[in-house]
C-alpha cells in the first residue's frame, strides 16, 4: 500500500496547477523511491517529467509498485478543497480503485478526506537519455516567465542563442521583433537573482512560445529555473524542488526555417 504524507498541500497543488493545462490524464507511478509522473501533451510536442522523492514526504511508505491513473482536472477539484498549509496524506491500496487524500489543518482539528476514482491509463513511457548539454542557463524563474510572456505578445516562437556573450532570446513577429540579452550575473545579497551560463559550445534553437509560457506556470515552485540546450535536441526546463525532487519539461525544437 501507499501512504505518503506531505508537510504542505501547497507543493502538490502547485505541481498539479503547473501541468494540468499540458496533460489531462496521467499515471502517478509510486514505488519505494517516491512518486513519479511522465506524460506527453496531446500534440506530442512537450513532455512533463515529475519526481517527488520519498524524502520529500514524511513518512513515506510504498511496498509495491502502484500506478495511480488520475485525471488532473479531478485532482485539481479535490486539491482546491485543501488549504495551502494543510498536511496532505495520499493513501492507496495495492490494487486500488481510488486514491484517498486526507487534509489536516495544523491549527484547527479539521480533518477532511476525499477519494478520487482511478482510471486505467495506457501511457507510453519514453526513455530520456542522459545528455551532456552544450549550454546550461540557470536564471530567476520569474525572469524567464517574463521573457516568455513578453515575447509571446509579438511572436509564436523564440530563438534562444547561447554564446560566450551570454544568452539572447529573440523573436520576429508581424508587428516587429524583440530581443532580450542576459549575461552571467552574481548577486551576493540575493542569490535567487543570479544568472549563470555554463557553455561548452554555442547553441541556437527555436521553440514555440505557447509551450514555454505554459511551463512557466511552475515558476511558483522554485526561485530559479534551469534551461539545458544542445543543438537539435529537446530543451529541458527544470524547476528543482527540495530533497532532489523536480519538475521537468522537455520541448521539441522547431525544425527548418
Amino acid at each position: 500500500m501507499l501512504e505518503a504524507r506531505l508537510e504542505q498541500a501547497n507543493l502538490l497543488k502547485k505541481v498539479v496547477d503547473a501541468i494540468k493545462d499540458l496533460v489531462q490524464d496521467c499515471n502517478f507511478d509510486c514505488n519505494d523511491s517516491g512518486i513519479a509522473l511522465q506524460a506527453m501533451d496531446n500534440s506530442h510536442v512537450a513532455l512533463v517529467s515529475m519526481m517527488l522523492k520519498s524524502e520529500s514526504f514524511s513518512p513515506f511508505r510504498c511496498d509495491r509498485n502502484i500506478a495511480l491513473g488520475i485525471n488532473l482536472g479531478s485532482l485539481t477539484k479535490v486539491l482546491r478543497c485543501a488549504q495551502n498549509e494543510d498536511i496532505l496524506t495520499l493513501k492507496a491500496e495495492d490494487a486500488p480503485d481510488v486514491v484517498n487524500l486526507v487534509f489536516e489543518s495544523a491549527e484547527t482539528d479539521r480533518i477532511s478526506e476525499y477519494d478520487i476514482k482511478l482510471m486505467d491509463i495506457d501511457q507510453e513511457h519514453l526513455g530520456i537519455p542522459e545528455t551532456e548539454y552544450a549550454a546550461t542557463i540557470t536564471m530567476p524563474s520569474a525572469e524567464f516567465q517574463r521573457i516568455c510572456r513578453d515575447l509571446s505578445a509579438l511572436s509564436e516562437s523564440v530563438s534562444i542563442e547561447c554564446s560566450k556573450e551570454g544568452v539572447k532570446f529573440n523573436c520576429q513577429g508581424d508587428i516587429g521583433s524583440g530581443s532580450i540579452h542576459l549575461r552571467s550575473h552574481t548577486n551576493v545579497d540575493k542569490p535567487e537573482l543570479n544568472v549563470e551560463i555554463d557553455l561548452t559550445e554555442p547553441v541556437s534553437l527555436t521553440f514555440s512560445l505557447k509551450y514555454l509560457v505554459n511551463f512557466c506556470k511552475a515558476s511558483g515552485l522554485s526561485n530559479q529555473v534551469k534551461l539545458c540546450l544542445s543543438n537539435e535536441v529537446p530543451l529541458l526546463v527544470e524547476y528543482a524542488l527540495s530533497n532532489n525532487s523536480y519538475l521537468r519539461f522537455y520541448l521539441a525544437p522547431k525544425i527548418g526555417d
Binding site: S43, V45, L47, E124, G127, S157, A252, K254
Partner: peptide
C-alpha cells in the same frame, strides 16, 4: 516556414 518536431522522435519508447 518552420515545422514543429515531435518529442517522441527524440526519446525512444522505454
Amino acid at each position: 516556414k518552420q515545422g514543429q518536431g515531435s518529442i517522441a522522435s527524440f526519446f525512444k519508447k522505454a
